[in-house]
Amino acid sequence: MTDAIAPRYGRRRRTDKVMLGLCWAATAFGLGWLVLILFSLIWNGASGLDLAVFMEMTPPAGSTGGGLLNAIVGSLIITAIGVAIGAPLGMLAGTYMAEYGRYSKLASVTRFINDILLSAPSIIIGLFIYGAVVVPMHGATGIAGGIALAVIVVPVVVRTTEDMLLLVPNPLREAASALGLPRSHVIIKVAYKAARAGLITGVLLAVARISGETAPLLFTSANSPYWSVDPFHDAMANLPVTINNFVNNPDPNWRRLAWAAALIITFAVLVLNIVARVLGATRAPK
């Protein structure tokens, strides 16, 4: 009987070897691309980085030197506006879904819509804010860019806030309620505190998500070669759209700065992700 089984077993063993070999190959293939990307990013980005990148304005085409100072500052302002609008809104909505309407119709509809917004094409969000803010304001502004980014922040924060509040054990809330605390105090002083690390993680992930977003900024904050810090008037310089414009131009100095800007953004995103991870792993009530 073993004789009859042996050849078939041999075939099964071979199939196993081949398929698992392919899994190894897939991993090597997948990670290989990503290593390549990071390598060329660091190689080209680091050679373009110097102190002037952080000290000087974006140069006109055809010149040498110059930096990205106005774009970096503009990006920081737009991101700050996005988080300042999006994070509180998202946190409140997430609170409603986890604390008040856990099983209500509104919460389940919002949850579903929120999940769709989470992966909605960001260029569409740019179009929407163009129509809703840029056209009434008669031109691209930093605040329009910030609002576009806020629309991306909201679903991320809603999701993490709800998840994190659901992890807070109910006996904590019951104990607080038993002491006679009103519901809003139970949420703000007990549930929020217990879930604090998770809530901060959510906001950090949202910042990481928006700091490289380009598509929603193309028509909302646009770009500016000048020092631009007033979010209510005129286009505002920012790193992603600067990269977009510089890559599309054959000027070698602009391309050097585009690589440097790409390295700065990637580095910032990775750091934010790592901080969020460490914070989430050590403090989240899991």
Partner: peptide, 22 residues
């Protein structure tokens, strides 16, 4: 309590309004 409740509820409705607006 009522203020906080309505703030969170309106925020949740805002999420729906964003999609509706788009």
């Amino acid at each position: 309590d009522a203020t906080f409740y309505w703030m969170t509820r309106i925020a949740a409705i805002c999420v729906l309004l964003i999609l509706g607006g788009i």
